[in-house]
């Protein structure tokens, strides 16, 4: 536990914000993740923020757009960018962008129809581009998702990471809970969501619903953040207090009820998330084995 005297500003947390208010001034000096409305804002904003306000990622969302039609700026360079796009589009057009994308620090998450999104993510990953699909509580979790999980964890062919599975795998240590919500930047150890009034929450949904912390980004200290994060990180316990049906699922540790909805059958999410759990454990074991020192003859 932090001591009350510890009032130094925390520099390990990133503030997730929308670029709809003067964040350059009001969040100056903080580590940021910025949601932008226009891809053209990325380079301009990055130049304006400079090194004093480090940005961990710029996030651009276009629910209907494709990678095919997106203006990819070759000067993005190393700027970390996450693109949420509906689909890949015509591959013969995208193919010309592949080499450029490989030289950039871009992750592409597909949000369109699930089977299409899985295929698109697999194509990009196979070309060495960090990609993924957006899972939501309403995701049908079709066999395409299982195929994508299989490709990400078991395929012998080299490929880039596929989200949210790779991030979940990186965070899962066997004795902690993870969930697809990690992709929504729900991780109290790393992210705080902040709005124009400088109000804070550990999830975007909480922020939008006004379910905010009792301190702002202006007076946040390590102590305040740690204490609030500790309370937030115990939210899973409420599922057990109520003996929620999801707590009886073998995959709860990699889901935390992410797919729960009233009246919805849990049969499919149990099946898919159980396979994901096995795949993540396979990956962990593989990494552990690879960490062994090679025999020196």
């Amino acid at each position: 536990m932090s001591t009350p005297q510890n009032n130094t500003p925390r520099n390990t947390i990133s503030y997730v914000c929308d670029y709809q208010w003067p964040i350059e001034v009001e969040l100056k000096g903080k580590s940021l993740i910025v949601n932008v409305n226009h891809v053209g804002d990325i380079r301009r904003l990055n130049d304006a923020l400079g090194t004093e306000t480090p940005v961990q990622a710029y996030i651009y969302r276009d629910a209907y757009g494709s990678l095919e039609t997106l203006d990819v700026d070759p000067d993005w360079g190393d700027i970390p960018i996450v693109l949420y796009l509906n689909r890949l589009g015509q591959f013969r057009t995208v193919a010309h962008k592949v080499e450029m994308l490989k030289g950039l620090n871009v992750t592409v998450i597909f949000t369109g129809e699930e089977s299409r999104a899985c295929v698109d993510a697999q194509i990009l990953a196979s070309l060495g581009i960090h990609s993924g699909i957006k899972l939501t509580p309403d995701s049908p979790l079709s066999d395409s998702v299982l195929d994508l999980i299989t490709y990400n964890f078991y395929s012998q062919m080299p490929h880039a990471d596929i989200e949210p599975f790779s991030t979940m795998s990186r965070h899962y240590k066997g004795e902690n809970y993870v969930s697809p919500s990690l992709l929504d930047l729900e991780n109290p150890a790393r992210y705080l969501h902040v709005d124009a009034k400088h109000r804070l929450a550990f999830t975007r949904d909480d922020l939008l619903a006004g379910n905010v912390l009792d301190f702002t980004s202006d007076d946040a200290t390590d102590t305040l953040i740690d204490d609030a994060a500790q309370i937030f990180s115990r939210r899973w316990q409420q599922w057990f207090v109520e003996s929620h049906p999801c707590t009886f699922c073998p995959a709860f540790r990699v889901c935390k009820g992410f797919f729960h909805a009233p009246e919805k059958s849990t049969e499919r999410c149990t099946e898919v998330m159980s396979e994901l759990l096995e795949a993540i454990e396979f990956e962990r074991k593989k990494c552990e084995n690879h960490s062994k020192k090679p025999c020196q003859l």
């Binding site: 066997g174 902690n176 057990f240 707590t247 009886f248 699922c249 073998p250 540790r253």
Partner: peptide, 16 residues
């Protein structure tokens, strides 16, 4: 009548 459900609940409560 629900051994696996109980087992999963208990292992979800204490993960290892």
């Amino acid at each position: 009548d629900r051994p696996l459900e109980i087992f999963h609940h208990l292992t979800n409560l204490k993960l290892s």
